[in-house]
């Protein structure tokens, strides 16, 4: 019976072909992610470097000068683009957000995993998911219409301030830190806790001396992710920070950060001018910092593994 054999061979070949095409297709899209990332880096970098290559601004001056006069005419010395004010603004506002958010996040994570997992699952988990889902412009809008007037009334000043930005960001990064920290606490082996209880420690002692220290790498990962989110957030901050180009003297002063100046000026500067190019350089800076955060997270992660 040669016929059926021949037929089955044909079918085999058919399926092999599909197997090959299928694998090729999904492999292509897997590699496409690398291509996309490279493309993104190359395009942003090629625009971002033009400040330094075409306009001959020195990178050191760009990073460390507070002089921001992108529209100064040639008689008075031509445009100067020092981005230090924006960089300081970004750092300050992210750090303030972290200082406010971290205690709440770790507290909530401990509550969800150790104090009351039932309430954690029924009440806090959904609450965190909704916090994540709330669009950033809505956070910005509530900040603008509630928080800014509140700060103005209670503490004085304009209301538009570093503090307002920090609080808005703190709420926005809270779910990030909390869920990563809760995962880290959940992933701890049960014998840590049992050993600590068996030695007679109370729950608080166990949390403080055993659980949080052993979950520290995971918690730090959450903090860095939160920091990364705070650093890159644009519109919510822009709406409440006041956008005055100066280094803030106090928490109640208005200031500006990298994302805000990009958001505001990108639309009304002419492509190819020093002003416009320097905005692209700031975007490149944001990209580099965001990559550095990822590297930092990997460092923390591998350190955590070695310890265990």
């Amino acid at each position: 019976m040669p016929k059926p054999i021949k037929k089955s061979r044909k079918i085999n070949f058919y399926y092999l072909k599909h197997e090959f095409y299928g694998k090729a297709l999904v492999t292509f899209f897997g590699l496409f992610l690398i291509l996309l990332t490279l493309l993104l880096v190359v395009f942003i970098a090629s625009k971002g470097f033009s400040t330094f290559t075409k306009d001959h601004v020195s990178p050191l001056q760009f990073l460390f000068s507070t002089l921001w006069k992108p529209d100064r005419d040639l008689q008075s010395g031509g445009p100067v683009v020092g981005a230090l004010i924006f960089i300081i603004g970004s750092i300050l506002i992210s750090v303030i957000a972290l200082i406010i958010s971290t205690p709440f996040s770790i507290g909530t994570a401990v509550f969800m995993t150790e104090i009351s997992p039932r309430l954690g699952k029924k009440l806090l988990q959904p609450a965190i998911e909704i916090f994540v889902g709330i669009p950033s412009v809505v956070y910005g809008w509530v900040g603008l219409s509630v928080l800014v007037p509140f700060i103005h009334r209670v503490f004085g000043g304009l209301g538009f301030s570093l503090l307002a930005g920090g609080i808005v960001l703190a709420v926005m990064i809270f779910p990030t830190i909390t869920s990563v920290a809760a995962d880290a606490l959940r992933a701890l082996p049960g014998d840590y806790k049992e050993a600590s209880y068996a030695l007679g420690s109370t729950r608080w002692q166990t949390i403080r001396k055993v659980l949080v220290p052993s979950a520290l790498p995971g918690i730090l990962t959450g903090v860095v992710l939160g920091l990364a989110r705070a650093f890159g957030e644009a519109l919510a901050v822009q709406m409440v920070i006041g956008n005055s180009i100066r280094i803030p003297g106090s928490l109640l002063d208005s200031t500006v950060n990298l994302t805000s100046i990009i958001t505001m000026d990108m639309g009304n500067t002419v492509n190819g001018t020093v002003w416009n190019n320097s905005l692209w350089s700031m975007a490149l800076l944001l990209l580099v910092i965001s990559f550095l955060f990822i590297v930092l997270i990997h460092k923390i992660g591998s350190k955590g593994r070695v310890q265990r």
């Binding site: 897997g30 992610l33 996309l36 990332t37 993104l40 942003i44 890159g232 975007a283 990209l287 990822i294």
Partner: peptide
């Protein structure tokens, strides 16, 4: 290669959305 893909996924997902918006401006607008 797999590690690089994973790194790219992480890097892309943590990029500020304004930076991705600017990438879009370069490619899909200009």
């Amino acid at each position: 290669v797999t590690n690089i893909i994973r790194f790219c996924i992480e890097a892309l997902s943590s990029l500020p959305s304004i930076v991705i918006g600017l990438f879009g401006l370069l490619i899909f607008v200009n």
